[in-house]
Nucleic acid binder design. Structure first.
Length: 605
RNA sequence: GGUCGCAUAGCUCAGCUGGAUAGAGCACCUGCCUUCUAAGCAGGCGGUCCUAGGUUCGAAUCCUAGUGCGAUCACCA
């Protein structure tokens, strides 16, 4: 059941807003009562009408039989509102029929807008959206893919809704885990360098796995010598060496820092290739190695103002018990920074760098729900007014049937491999269908990638971010039904129609044309009319899934129209032109919707 | 144990301010390509909306309790 929500964007008064005023007037005229709001929903297909007023809530103000009240209000609307051409009442539902001219006028007013559904930038305050935020010791996997797709899409949706947006990430470029792969490389690497077949991030990731293997072997040996497992964990020589390396790094040891810079650069180069492959980008980057010091400064500041307190051993804490949470450490007893310190520093640094930012979105997995709750609270306590506009875009893990993905054990679905597999599948299907014989190899390759990526992105974005995804590599992602390729296919099919219309020089329609709409055409226009509102809702709720599901509904509606009504076989030239105009706006809407999902649309497929 | 999230058809998921007979896709079964691209369309099969109470004219949706799954509660990040 589709309900209509009052739009907040700037546009001509919507149908619902117009009707609301009239329904209120009707209640006033008929019953001398004031309604505070009117409840609307789309009329169910089995009843005549376009929009339905629910009478039940009015009973709080007007006493009586809902059917009788519905009849009276309906009659009033019919007599007083030009838009209304009929009505019927079923139980407590007043179904209103709207004049076709309303829909035709609406259609004519938007049909040539390339940016249909998008709102021009209006807010002076910008939003910073963080996503990806990888560690620099391993390549990106399917979990990162979900993160990156969600973050990128939410950023694009916010832009489309009229916000200024900065896309960013925080790079975990320091710490013991980075030293682990560095150490393994130093010991076993034999000066190996990235090659065309082995990207830098993969190379570094291999040594992270190598470290874990060697480390486990050492542990096993120590246990065999009689140590407890716990002791062996702490005493394994490799781990001690890694810890030593971290200390050297912090002390600025030339050799260690040099290796760190070299290997991180390999990883960054590898990441860039993957990001480009996925089709996402960033406006600005932040590195933990640069922001933790600022965090420490503000911890000191918070100590002075009483936001934090110091324990006997010198560690610094924030007492959140009044807010129903625990005490949280913000600085170690030895004065070094913890995770929270860095995040405080990063947030403040970002506002310093971009003073027009009034809020931030953090795309981070739901295992950090608590962390962000605390972070936001601390920033509020520190007195930053932007702290009230922070949002944790939390999402569920992507698990494999075998359990969690673990980079150090090599049980991950690699991002690059996955994309390649998706393209391969698209190629297979495409070859079976054999529609692209006249495409050259480059064109084909690019198309397979568009379709494969479209399938992957849609598959991930159409579900509620909160839900965890169980990804079975053996069961391939669908290319039929509620999928990216299905929608891309519809787009391509419309392009084919438009090419034909273009070569036939078919005229376009105008407001003055006396068009008689077919039921399917009217349904399509109604669905199109919802799009701007869907963008706004998706922005408010940070939900690409709303866009995906809307687009699917639109496309289903179009396909039904397409299969049941002939476009070029229309009875009159006017009808033909109208159907082509309608198809054009549908394809433009698909394109715009997919743009904010980060999915490309093909001209043919 | 405390806290947070999730639970809807065999499977994957929609279902937004509480509204009419809970919707899609996959899978399975019927039809439809000499006509604008069949990655499609038209239809069939399939439901204890986790359980039990409660609020309401009306509950998948809100409240309470419970069950199951996941996460979290580190001087790790």
């Amino acid at each position: 059941m589709q309900a209509f929500k009052t739009p907040k964007y700037n546009r001509i008064m919507t149908l619902q807003e117009t009707l609301e005023l009239h329904v209120k007037a009707a209640i006033k005229a008929l019953f001398q009562s004031e309604l505070t709001s009117v409840e609307f929903q789309a009329t169910r297909k089995e009843f005549a009408g376009d929009i339905t007023v629910v009478v039940f809530p009015m009973l709080r103000v007007v006493k009586g039989n809902p059917v009788v009240i519905g009849e009276q209000v309906g009659q009033y609307l019919l007599d007083n509102v030009e838009l209304v051409k009929g009505f019927n009442v079923v139980k407590g539902f007043l179904n209103i029929e709207i004049n076709d001219s309303y829909y035709l006028n609406f259609f004519q007013s938007v049909k040539n807008k390339a940016d249909y559904g998008f709102v021009e930038q209006k807010d002076d305050k910008a939003v910073m959206v963080e996503y990806s935020s990888p560690n620099t010791n391993k390549p990106l996997h399917l979990g990162h893919v979900r993160n990156v797709l969600l973050g990128y899409s939410v950023a694009e949706i916010l832009k489309a809704s009229g916000k200024k947006v900065y896309k960013t990430q925080i790079i975990n470029d320091r710490g013991i885990h980075i030293c682990k792969s560095m150490l393994a490389y130093q010991k076993f690497g034999q000066d190996e360098t990235p090659t065309e077949d082995l990207k830098g991030d993969k190379l570094v990731g291999n040594y992270y796995v190598k470290f874990d293997q060697e480390y486990k072997a050492e542990m096993a040996e120590l246990v065999a010598q009689g140590q407890s497992e716990e002791d062996a964990k702490k005493n394994a020589p490799l781990l001690l060496e890694a810890q030593e390396m971290l200390i050297k790094w912090e002390a600025g040891d030339k050799e260690v820092v040099g290796l760190w810079e070299k290997m991180n650069q390999w990883v960054y180069d590898g990441f860039e290739v993957t990001y480009k492959n996925i089709g996402v980008d960033f406006d600005t980057y932040y590195y933990e190695s640069n922001t933790y010091l600022l965090g420490k400064e503000f911890v000191a500041e918070g100590l002075k103002t009483g936001v934090f307190f110091k324990k006997e051993d010198g560690s610094v804490w924030c007492d959140l018990t009044e807010d129903g949470l625990d005490e949280k450490i913000v600085l170690r007893s030895d004065g070094t920074a913890v995770y929270m310190t860095q995040d405080i520093g990063t947030a403040i640094q970002r506002i310093k760098d971009y003073p027009d930012v009034g809020g931030m979105v953090y795309t981070v997995g739901n295992e950090q729900d608590y962390h962000f709750k605390v972070l936001f609270l601390i920033l509020k306590k520190l007195g930053f007014d932007w702290a009230k506009n922070l949002f944790h875009l939390s999402y569920g893990m992507v698990d494999l049937p075998s359990g969690k993905m673990k980079s150090r054990e090599g049980t991950v679905v690699d991002a690059d491999d996955l994309i390649q597999e998706m393209a391969d599948t698209a190629e297979e299907i495409s070859n079976d269908l054999g529609k692209l014989e006249d495409y050259n190899e480059d064109e084909k390759k690019s198309l397979y990638k568009t379709i494969g990526l479209g399938a992957l992105k849609y598959y991930i974005l159409k579900v509620d971010p909160k839900k965890r995804i169980l990804f079975d590599p053996k069961e391939s992602i669908d290319f039929q039904g509620n999928t990216g390729p299905f929608i891309q296919y519809t787009y391509a099919r419309i392009q084919s129609i438009l090419r034909k219309a273009d070569s036939d020089n078919i005229a376009t329609t105008s407001v003055d044309d006396a068009i008689v709409m077919h039921e399917k055409e009217k349904q399509l226009i109604k669905q199109l009319e919802l799009f701007p509102e869907v963008i706004q809702n998706a922005a408010e709720q940070h939900s690409p899934a709303l866009i995906a599901n809307y687009t699917y509904d639109l496309v289903k509606e179009f396909n039904s129209f397409y299969q049941n009504i002939s476009i070029f076989g229309a009875d009159t030239e006017l009808e033909k032109s109208f159907r082509i105009d309608l198809s054009r706006l549908v394809s433009q809407t698909i394109k715009n919707a997919f743009q904010v999902l980060g999915i490309e649309v093909p001209e043919r497929m």
